[in-house]
Design a protein around this nucleic acid. Structure first.
Lengths: 147, 147
DNA sequence: ATGGGTGCAAAGGATTTGCAACATT
DNA sequence: AATGTTGCAAATCCTTTGCACCCAT
């Protein structure tokens, strides 16, 4: 039993059902920004009756309760993050993976602020480009071409 | 004939067909962060044979060529922006509209940079919250409740 | 027994694809 | 003629909804 997952749920005002615990536990244990499908595949082995519906509903619930973050950098690339502290994300356009950039200064918004009369309570900063690994693969391919 | 639309296309290496000109012209003339459907509805009156397929393909083409920005703040809220200078976006969760926050300092990335071996060539910062108008509507509703 | 949680099947939407027609060089 | 562009129809994919069942209180 994952005490961290349990606490996150209870602290967020969510009842810790089997499925919710398993999904939250997966999120906390896989800091790879999984998609809905990733979560489903990862958890269904443990909770064989799990349905995609529940994963959809549960992840939405989590993000509504700020028990997890929904990240939508790109069309066709919705993923989730159990880390609810503000941090910067980086999407590799080649492999589609999302990385955390821990050293980057993330926009902080501890409390909602008002700007031009608008109430702002959430901020997201992300970068796009090509990750180290994909860059190296590209280099390899170029070498091979020349050789 | 919209010379700005024309130039943007040619500068981006895109052939200025009737449809592309009309779509780019719409983008440049409507700084409201229109969705694909918005663009379609706005342009079809002018180019009656226009199809949604073409709008999809064309907007994707634009963003691939950096002739426009695709903005995906939220799941189910993909929109486009003819303004290709970096600026901060603000999504109102109530009405779903996206605003520009011009006074905010946007992350600048004139040239691609390397960070931890990753090549970063694009940055997006956005805020979420409730816009001025929706806040005022809420206030109105509360007043009425009390009265 | 009551309310919340789950999961199936179906519906709903948004986006892409295959392909034929068309325009432009 | 050759290439690039458009647009219809269909396919696909992702996500939500309606509803019945189930579990826990």
């Amino acid at each position: 039993m994952d005490i961290n997952a349990y606490n996150r749920l209870v602290d967020s005002g969510l009842r810790p059902s089997t499925q919710r615990l398993a999904i939250m536990s997966y999120l906390l244990g896989h800091r790879t920004h999984p998609t809905v499908e990733d979560v489903f595949q990862g958890v269904v082995t443990e909770v064989p009756t799990l349905s995609r519906t529940t994963v959809y509903n549960t992840l939405r619930l989590f993000s509504e309760h700020k028990a997890a973050q929904m990240i939508t950098i790109d069309d066709h690339h919705v993923c989730y993050d159990g880390d609810i502290h503000p941090h910067v994300h980086f999407l590799c356009r080649e492999c589609g993976r999302v990385f955390d950039l821990m050293d980057e200064k993330a926009p902080k918004l501890k409390r909602p602020v008002t700007r031009d009369g608008n109430l702002i309570d959430e901020a997201q900063l992300y970068y796009k480009g090509v990750c180290k690994e994909c860059l190296e693969k590209e280099k390899e391919n170029n070498k091979n071409k020349i050789a």
